[in-house]
Each structure stands twice: as C-alpha cells, then as structure tokens.
C-alpha cells in the first residue's frame, strides 16, 4: 500500500525539521533582552538546546511575554522540574521550565536558580494551567515553594511525609519505614 515510501526521495511533504536550533534561539535571546534587559542573566547553548537563566522575580512576566510574543509563541508548557545541585552547592536548587510552541515547533528551557534558605519562586499557574501539577510535584520532592500557587499540596508522597525525597541529603531508603498514622 505504501510502495512509494521505499525510495529515499519520496518524502512526505509537510515535514518540518526541528527549528529549535541555534540561529533562531540566540536571536530570540537578544530580542528578549531588548524588551527587558533584566529578564535574562545568561544564555547557554548546548546539545542543540537553549537555556535562559532567569531571575526569579521576572519568571512570570517573561513567561507571559514568551507565550504571546509573535516570534516566540511558547503556548505549551511541556514540563517543570526541579534539580538539586548538591548540599554544598550555592545556589543549591534550580527549577527548569521546558517550553514548546505548538505552532513554531521550537523549544526553550528557562532556568531559575534558588538558594536553600530562600527556595521560593512565583508560580506560573496564571500563565499555563498545566503548571499546577508540575509545581506541586516539584514542591513535594524538593521543598521548593511556589508563591501564589492555588493548591500547593504534596502530590506523590503522603501528606504527612517528612522531608523532600529528591533532595540529595535525603537517604535513598528514607529515614524510617513509612506507616500510616
């Protein structure tokens, strides 16, 4: 039925090769800095992926801008995940936002770094509703507080769980066997 596909040159017509890559993303970073110079503290281009490090007070305004700006159109929040760089590292935590555009098909990572003493970051649930569960998960496993989140409860672990399981100083097998109180 699909005999034509045997030959290499008979490719489907509407293939779009990933346009994430380097030229567009670095121009995006400079364009963003023109809008607001404080939005981005550093730009990193590795493995074909762009990472913008963002001060936490600007994360909501930057996300709202990226969602609607015609050259960005990041209308899809793919993922939010936390990471613990290590107990001695300073700043210790980072929150990664993986953005995707359903129309332009490019991707972007925003990174917010946080210290252990002040692990607070404003919520982006007002920009994308899907952020709700991602932020709950990050709170549950890392103890990062998302200021303004409508329902910041634990999601994977029980409500009375002690500690935050994905922190590097949390032992793999926990402190003690868990039992329902």
């Amino acid at each position: 039925m699909t005999t034509g596909a045997n030959s290499e040159n008979n490719l489907p017509e509407n293939v779009t090769i990933d346009p994430t890559q380097n030229s567009t993303s670095s121009s995006l970073a400079t364009a963003l800095q023109r809008v607001n110079a404080g939005w981005i503290t550093s730009t990193n281009l590795t493995f074909g992926e762009t990472t913008l490090t963002v001060p936490r007070e600007h994360i909501v305004s930057l996300c709202s801008h990226l969602k609607t700006a015609p050259d960005a159109q990041f209308d899809f929040l793919a993922d939010i995940c936390g990471a613990d760089r290590g107990v001695e590292e300073e700043p210790r935590f980072e929150v990664n936002y993986h953005l995707f555009s359903t129309t332009k098909h490019h991707r972007l990572r925003l990174k917010v770094v946080l210290t252990e003493e002040d692990a607070h970051v404003p919520t982006v649930t007002g920009v994308w509703r899907t952020a709700n569960w991602h932020e709950r998960e990050t709170f549950d496993l890392f103890g990062i507080i998302f200021n303004g989140h409508p329902d910041l409860r634990r999601i994977l672990l029980p409500d009375d769980w002690q500690g935050h399981a994905l922190r590097k100083d949390f032992p793999l097998r926990g402190y003690e066997p868990y039992s329902l109180k």
């Binding site: 490719l11 293939v15 779009t16 994430t20 359903t102």
Partner: peptide, 20 residues
Amino acid sequence: GVNLDIRRANPYTGYEKYDF
C-alpha cells in the same frame, strides 16, 4: 483538533523519512 505530533514537529530516530 490540534495537529501536533512530535514525530513530525521535532523528528527523532529517522521519523522524518516515513510517510504517515
């Protein structure tokens, strides 16, 4: 109704060569 498939949007492991 959103026409979005990652095999098309960001092709990987050679999906760009397939007709579907």
